[in-house]
Amino acid sequence: MAVTTIELQPGFADKVLAAQSTFRTVMEAMARPGQVMAVDDEVGHPPSMMVGVAAVALTLLDQDTPVWLDDAFASASDVGAWLKFHTGAPIVARPDAASFALVAAPAALPDLSVFALGTAEYPDRSTTLIMQVPSLAAGESFRLRGPGIDGTTALTASLAPADLFARLSINQALFPRGIDVILVDDRSLVAIPRTTRLAASGV
């Protein structure tokens, strides 16, 4: 036990205040879809996990939030132990039982319908996807609209899977059920809640 904990990367340097400031970053991101926000807290993380994912996990996960890991995260030797030690979140095999899903290799993202999408009466009982993507600074241009956006906003990003927004169009048909996504590139993050729609895209 002691050996494992020593080998593990640390979590937040200041648990209380870093969780607060990371939460405000995530809250602002969720309130302003498509806008790139930055996590600026000091945070340890397993090598295969981006800083942003680690910070969000430390902020939102605990023993009450079952978490699902994609194959890439699940097979990384230290991710499960790090999450368990720092958050206590139970790791579950069924994606539809997860409050959060952490995705290291989004190109291999399973069909979104495997996750919890909430019910008509409790649409909040859905999985929040936290995905590492190639870039939130360069790449294709996506024009987004929806609550939180003044008219439309442009997101320039290199996304995986490439058809992410096409897949997220299930949110339109399912609403108020649906899936909320947080995209992470290193320290940057962008939220795409279930209300956000793709207005146009191009290179």
């Binding site: 809250m27 969720m30 939102l60 939030t65 409050s99 649409p123 909040d124 929040t128 939180g148 649906g178």
Partner: peptide, 24 residues
């Protein structure tokens, strides 16, 4: 306490994602 804050923070994020819906 931090656990309570996390629980409330998660509820706030869902509330923002589903405007006007009352999250328990």
């Amino acid at each position: 306490d931090e656990q309570t804050k996390r629980m409330i923070r998660r509820a706030i994020l869902k509330a923002i994602a589903i405007p006007g819906y009352q999250v328990p």
